[in-house]
């Protein structure tokens, strides 16, 4: 047995099984916290600043990406003092467009890579895809793991692939998408998280947004626990990004509560926590407008994207 193999064996052996019922009960308790008034407004603004504003459609055009970049910077100018989102997330072919549009801002450009969303391509293609995104100027890369190999039990392949992409990224931060909707159990989610963290992920991310269910709270809690265990053991922080299916501000606040109670305040910044979302931003903006103006809002008065 090679040393590499024994490392993977040790990751598998040390990856705990997950109590599904217990996880669901703990999640239910996070959702009972009542956040009102000033704390709510703060939480909503924090959620806004953590959004990776995303467009990953086959029909994306340069115009659409430019529009999205403008939105990222000017979320809703009618309300002064709003933060910008954390990043704009696009396909590799759109990175240079987004980069140009956001050059004068602090907003990052994230690019999906590695034959997103299926990930069913040879490693060489995935590395080339990643290098292309990095060369175009991406600040962050969102890769997908090979779920097929994971299901076959070829964990070494999954591990090596993440490590190879990490190498191709260089200094660019790497988010590893587990696509938890395709991993059947929370035990698998935990194991995939552990593999990704040990292989060098800067962030672990739930989903591509193309598969249902996307991000759920139990899945996210399982991943947060993997991050916490790693941090307790090594002192190394890993970021978390739930993506897909988080479209209401109430749910976003519940996620923030969960991050705070599981990992602590250190993770409550967009350096360590992100929401992958497209429609969440408008719902948060409408909630902020409701808090500021007192009346319930209408989507008619907010930009579509």
């Amino acid at each position: 047995m090679t040393s590499e193999n024994s490392k993977i064996q040790s990751i598998i052996q040390n990856s705990p099984t997950i109590d599904k019922v217990g996880t669901e009960e703990r999640v239910a308790r996070f959702q009972t916290r009542s956040i009102k008034g000033d704390s709510k407004l703060m939480g909503l603004k924090m959620a806004l600043s953590m959004i990776d504003l995303t467009t990953l459609e086959g029909k994306d055009t340069q115009g659409k990406v430019k529009q999205l970049c403008y939105k990222a910077e000017h979320l809703h100018d009618a309300i002064p003092g709003l933060p910008t989102v954390a990043a704009v997330c696009v396909y590799p072919s759109m990175v240079s467009i987004a980069k140009k549009a956001l050059n004068h801002t602090q907003i990052k450009v994230a690019s999906v890579a590695t034959a997103f969303p299926g990930g069913q391509s040879p490693l060489a293609v995935k590395i080339a895809d990643t290098k292309f995104a990095v060369d175009q100027g991406a600040d962050e890369v969102d890769m997908v793991i090979s779920r097929g190999k994971f299901m076959e039990g070829n964990y070494a392949y999954v591990f090596d692939e993440i490590a190879a992409i990490k190498e191709a990224c260089g200094n660019v931060r790497l988010k590893v998408i587990l696509e938890t909707g395709e991993l059947a159990t929370l035990d698998d989610v935990r194991l995939a998280s552990d593999l990704a963290i040990h292989a060098g992920a800067d962030f672990i991310k739930t989903s591509t947004g193309k598969i249902q269910p996307a991000a759920t709270m139990p899945v996210t809690l399982t991943m947060l626990m993997a991050i916490k265990d790693h941090y307790d053991k090594t002192g190394v922080m890993v970021g978390m990004k739930p993506a897909g299916g988080i479209s209401t501000s109430k749910l976003a606040l519940h996620y923030l509560v969960m991050v705070n109670e599981v990992l602590g305040e250190k993770w409550l910044s967009n350096e360590w926590f992100r929401f992958g979302a497209s429609s969440l931003a408008n719902d948060v903006l409408m909630q902020i407008a409701k808090t500021v103006n007192g009346s319930y809002q209408s989507a008619d008065y907010f930009s579509i994207d």
Partner: peptide, 8 residues
């Protein structure tokens, strides 16, 4: 009041 002020 909430009905009349509702923007939607």
């Amino acid at each position: 009041s909430p009905l009349a002020s509702h923007m939607d």
